[in-house]
Amino acid sequence: MTPVPVEDAAVAEGLVRMRELAGALSDVERGGAGLRAAPRPSDAILGLVGPPGVGKSSLISALVRRARDRGERVVVLAVDPSSPMTGGALLGDRIRLAEHATDPGVFVRSFASRGHPGGLSAAIPAAVETALALGWDRVFIEPVGGGQNDVDVVACADHVVLVVSPESGDDIQALKAGILEMVDVIAINKADRPGASTLRTMLRSQWRGRGQGSIVLVSAADGTGLEDLDDRTREVGDGDASRRDAALVSAVLNDASVALRASLADATLRSAVIDLARAGDRSAAIRHLLEGARHA
């Protein structure tokens, strides 16, 4: 028996592209600026958010299949949390995308959040642009998960889908004030299960963002509703700038908190802030922190 060679010519050719993108993404993750696509389509970047266990990855896998049927080259950027204690991370999203494992037109990269709040890692915005600049056609972003705080993806994706399932009623209550106001489409996955249409009715009454048409019943397992969902995520943006602006502000605030946290590495600043806070004057502590960070 001889070793199985990389016999598929398409794979061999795809390898060159993959290595180019892999290296560029590593540069970005090390803090590099990345590349920027000149003009790019306004519907190339899709974010999928939602509580754990609703089948986001399975849905991405199904949407990737549709994109591949159209001949598009696809990148999936999946983010999992880093441990705040050790910095380590377990990145397991590839497993759910196993059906595309040998497809040279599908590139999956796992990112650890590395302490960045907002559901993404700091590298994701530049990573997305870099992928498009290198000629990949469509980018899927799967933030950390949990939904409520995954607002950064709204600032960086053209469309954002909130994925829920008939079992996620309690989680949706928690989402009401956050991400729910910022998404374009709600996909109710596992639509064959009891409770799906009840959930749709409930969401229609709660969600006044974009009208009733954008709640889609889907099943990643049997393909129900995927075409509809795919179409809706390819509609040209409607110019709802306020939503994106709100997310951008939120993302900037997240970045700011990271920067402020970093400035606390300065021991003098840190102890001064702690002293002020301990003395009960929080606003003085904040002023001192901002001042200190400005000079850092």
Binding site: V6, M18, A89, L91, R94
Partner: peptide, 29 residues
């Protein structure tokens, strides 16, 4: 254990072919 030692660990799951492992290693760098 590697996660707790500060590594970023990507686990591929079961039943991997050598080709799949190589492609994952490329993509994940």
């Amino acid at each position: 254990i590697l996660r707790d030692a500060g590594c970023e660990v990507i686990y591929t799951g079961l039943h991997q072919t050598p080709q799949k492992i190589a492609l994952a290693a490329v993509q994940e760098d």
